[in-house]
Design a protein around this nucleic acid. Structure first.
Length: 491
RNA sequence: CGGGGUGUGGCGCAGUUGGCUAGCGUACUUGCAUGGGGUGCAAGUGGUCGGAAGUUCGAGUCUUCUCACCCCGACCA
């Protein structure tokens, strides 16, 4: 199953594609650009959802659901929003099919043309703000803190499993506030939620920052983002949170009566993370032997493999194995006991390594005699012999250690791949040799950013929050600059 | 959407200037042995060669069209 698998060194992009497919996370479907998320991949996504959903609720948000279809006219109400998404929208024009007159298959019934065409949502700001108009009259109705879990469609030219697909799953938060300050605090708070999630669950260190004007969300006044570094030195935008100002309130005429009796437009935010996080998870931690999953997101945290020569031995081994399984499960650890007789232990070892199961326990007759088990950890590929006494606490502790180690390793990698460039030559040399994050001065103009992108394919990933101010000269134009920004090639 | 590449049992591949019954590895099924790092031996199942049309006595092989996927561009909150 996992043979003929390229190394990261040989072909990083092939390594990723093969890994996603061969580990059973997802596959391509009959529809171009759309993926099938398979049970193992979906189980990981569900764990992400559960953790995020809890964090959203803890910060006062409620879930709701808005339609997948958006009337075309809604879409054009916010000018920059339309401009940003128009090129990648799927459009519903008819609502009926009929048998083809020539008897060959089925065709669109031209008489069933929609009065107003519907856009399949690429994001839901417009349809949601159209509802908010009816929900908001007074400052007493604010804030509105809503999240929805949904699928969206963006007709991408070039797709890759999880990283960029035509249809993807995500959550989108849409909030409405009485004041600018409150909205900005909300946008920043949710960015923090994302960063915390990335670090604690995905074991992925992220840079928090704001986007430049060029990279900003269509319709936003400020876009906050978390950026993560992948093992090939490219950056991946892992989540965004937008301060939308009053743009959508004005477009959809959402006003509220203030305490003082005036009428004001509502302030808005939106924020989202998607199944792209699955791609980030894979690319950040996995190795040439397959997936490496952080324990907190692994659908199976521990696999137990029996070693035996005959039915009699299997029975004895199974008895011990199941005791361990129960003890671990009582600790809330998810355990699979694989007593499938069709595969040999060696085959299973490789298989579970490929699937990224954090901890593997092997137990055989020798262990039974000695009261031990063999424990192997996926992240370091080390093997240990543990006494069975107090095994639940030991494994629980080991899982925490693994989670921690995966994060530490990713952080060390990022630090190693983060450098300063003080002039154009240093900048291009770094980009060509190592990529990674490059802190460099930029004169602050969209034109310069555009030019740098043209010349090097590197973009400004973010302007870090709480960035250190420092006088310098733009690496391209030599114009004065007050701070370094983060450049990288990106997904 | 432009340039390049690949489509042959589930997966990975071979198949010569068109020629006979389309082959190999792996997986799968069965049996026996084996079992602490992808187990060995033996037998067996499985393919309208991506699809359509054409050239030909004869097409996996040649021609045209088409579809899908991969790589590089363009595009990408």
């Amino acid at each position: 199953m996992a043979k003929n698998f390229p190394t990261r060194e040989e072909n990083y992009s092939q390594w990723y594609n093969d890994l996603v497919i061969k580990a059973g996370l997802a596959e391509n479907s009959a529809v171009r650009g759309c993926m099938v998320i398979k049970p193992y991949g979906f189980a990981i996504w569900e764990k992400m959802q559960a953790a995020l959903d809890k964090m959203f609720k803890e910060t006062g948000h409620q879930n709701a659901y808005f339609p997948i279809f958006i009337p075309k006219s809604f879409f054009s109400k916010e000018a920059s929003h339309v401009e940003g998404f128009a090129k990648e929208c799927a459009v519903v024009t008819h609502y009926r099919l009929k048998n083809s007159p020539d008897g060959k298959g089925i065709i669109v019934d031209e008489t069933a043309k929609l009065e107003e065409e519907l856009i399949v949502r690429p994001t839901s700001e417009t349809i949601i703000w159209d509802s908010y108009r009816n929900w908001i009259q007074s400052y007493r109705d604010l804030p509105i803190l809503i999240n929805q879990w949904a699928n969206v469609v963006r007709w991408e030219m070039r797709t890759r499993l999880f990283l960029r697909t035509a249809e993807f799953l995500w959550q989108e938060g849409h909030t409405a506030h009485a004041t600018e300050k409150e909205a900005i605090i909300e946008a920043e708070k949710m960015l923090d939620v994302y960063a915390t999630f990335a670090e604690n669950w995905l074991a992925l260190p992220v840079l928090k920052g704001t986007k430049t004007q060029n990279e900003r969300f269509a319709g936003a006044l400020e876009t906050y983002c978390i950026e993560a570094l992948m093992q090939d030195g490219k950056s991946l935008q892992a989540g965004t949170s937008h301060f939308l100002g009053q743009n959508f309130a004005k477009a959809f005429d959402v006003k509220f009566a203030t305490k003082e009796g005036g009428m004001e437009y509502v302030w808005a935010t939106s924020w989202g993370v998607s199944t792209r996080l699955m791609g980030a998870l894979v690319m950040a931690h996995s190795d040439d032997k397959g997936l490496v999953l952080p324990p907190k997101l692994a659908p199976i945290q521990v696999v137990i493999i029996p070693i035996y020569k005959n039915a009699e031995q299997l029975q004895i081994v199974t008895e011990s194995a199941l005791k361990i399984k129960v003890a671990l499960e009582n600790k809330g650890i998810s355990v699979k006991y694989d007593d499938d007789d069709n595969q040999k232990p060696g085959w299973k070892f490789n298989e579970y390594e490929f699937k990224g199961i954090p901890v593997r326990i092997a137990i055989g007759p020798r262990d039974i005699e000695q009261g031990t088990i063999e424990v192997a950890r996926r992240d370091t590929l080390e093997k240990f012999t543990y006494h069975q006494i107090d095994i639940d606490n030991k494994i629980e502790h080991l899982l925490l250690q693994i989670q921690d180690n995966i994060y530490t390793k990713a952080l060390a990698f990022r630090e190693e791949q983060t450098r300063n460039a003080d002039n154009w030559e240093e900048f291009t040399t770094l980009l060509n040799e190592k990529a990674g994050f490059i802190y460099a001065h930029w004169d602050g103009t969209p034109e310069t950013e555009e030019k740098i992108k043209e010349l090097t394919k590197a973009t400004i990933r973010c302007i870090p929050l709480n960035n250190k101010l420092e006088e310098g000269k733009c690496i391209l134009t030599g114009n004065p600059s007050k701070q370094r920004v983060v450049f990288a090639r990106a997904y």
